[in-house]
Design a protein around this nucleic acid. Structure first.
Ligand SMILES: [Mn+2]
Ligand SMILES: [Mn+2]
Ligand SMILES: [Zn+2]
Ligand SMILES: [Zn+2]
Lengths: 147, 147
DNA sequence: GCTGCAAATGCAACCTTGTTGCATTCTGAA
DNA sequence: TTCAGAATGCAACAAGGTTGCATTTGCAGC
C-alpha cells in the first residue's frame, strides 16, 4: 500500500475515474509537496508563481471540490474559518477510522479509532452523512509557543 | 462574582464591567434563549424580526466581539467555516446529546443519543472539542417533495 | 486517427462573512 | 449636570466562496 505522497497525480485521477486535466494534476502535485494543509489562496499563489499558465480562481475551487468528492483531498476548517486542503490517496481508505483536525495548522490526522455508529433518528428523518469531528492541536502545534 | 446562570443581561454586563447598552442586552437575551449556537446572520435576522429597531450589522459584530472578550459569549467555527456564538452560563447544555442538522432547511435538532466518547490521541496531541455531526433531511423536509 | 458528447474550464458577476475609518451618540462616573 | 471615553451607524473595503453561461478539452467509441 503506497503512502499518500508516492502515487502520481495522473494515476490517482485515473484510479478514481475522473478526467486527467492539467489543473488537477498541478493541484494534486502541490498538495502532495506541501508539508501542511494549504488554503485555496496559498495553492493559487504557488501555482501562479511556478507556472507560466495561471489557474483560474473559480476553476481552482472546482478542482478542489472534485478532489474532495472523490477522496483525493481532505478539507478542514481552520480557526479563522478558512478551508484548508491536504492530499489523500485512493490507496488510503478514510472510511474506517476517525480523524483529528488541528485547529491551529489545519492538519488532518488519521486516528486508530473506529467511527461511532449513527444514532437512532426520530420518525421521518433521513440520514445522509455522519461526521465525527475531533478537534484540538496536534503535537507540533501544541509544542510550539502560542502566537 | 454573580451567578452567570441566573443573572439578567443587565447584571451580567455590570458584573464584567462593560457598558450596558440596548444592543448588548438584546444580543445576550437572544443567545440565552437560543437552543443552539447562533451565527451572526441568524442573530441579526432574529433581532431584526422581533424588534422595531434593527441592529447595525457592524455593531452586531462588535457587540459579539466585546461579549467574547469578557467571557459572556463563546465563539466556535462550524463545519462550514462560519462563526457561531453561544451564551456563557446558559441553562441549556448541549454537551450531553447529539445533534442532527437538516441540509435542506438548515435546522438543528437535539437527539436523545449520547455523544460518543473521544478516541485515544497520539502523544503530544491536545483535545479541544469533539463534535458528532449527523446530517440529512428532517421529517418535514423529507415529506415535502423535492424543490 | 477521427468524432461527438459530457466534463472541465474561463470569465464576469454576485453573495456572504468579516473588517476598518470616521463622525455622531450614548453611558456612567465624577 | 457635565463630559471623556465607550459604543454606535454608515460607508467603504477585502477575502472567501458561489453561480451562470459560453467555450474548450478529455476520452470513449468507432
Ligand atoms: Mn484517514
Ligand atoms: Mn441540543
Ligand atoms: Zn497542528
Ligand atoms: Zn429540514
Amino acid at each position: 500500500m503506497a503512502d499518500l505522497h508516492s502515487a502520481s497525480p495522473d494515476n490517482l485521477l485515473r484510479t478514481v475515474g475522473i478526467k486527467v486535466t492539467r489543473g488537477r494534476v498541478r493541484v494534486i502535485a502541490a498538495l502532495q509537496a506541501a508539508r501542511q494543509p494549504m488554503s485555496h489562496a496559498e495553492i493559487g499563489t504557488q501555482l501562479g508563481a511556478d507556472a507560466a499558465v495561471p489557474l483560474d480562481r473559480v476553476t481552482l475551487y472546482r478542482i478542489l471540490e472534485s478532489l474532495v468528492a472523490v477522496g483525493l483531498a481532505l478539507r478542514a476548517v481552520d480557526t479563522r474559518g478558512v478551508f484548508r486542503f491536504s492530499a489523500a490517496g485512493t490507496l488510503h481508505r478514510h472510511e474506517g477510522h476517525v480523524h483529528f483536525r488541528c485547529t491551529d495548522c489545519g492538519g488532518v490526522f488519521c486516528l486508530k479509532a473506529a467511527p461511532p455508529s449513527p444514532p437512532k433518528l426520530p420518525r421521518g428523518f433521513r440520514l445522509a452523512a455522519v461526521e465525527f469531528d475531533v478537534r484540538g492541536t496536534c503535537a507540533v502545534c501544541s509544542a510550539r509557543p502560542a502566537a
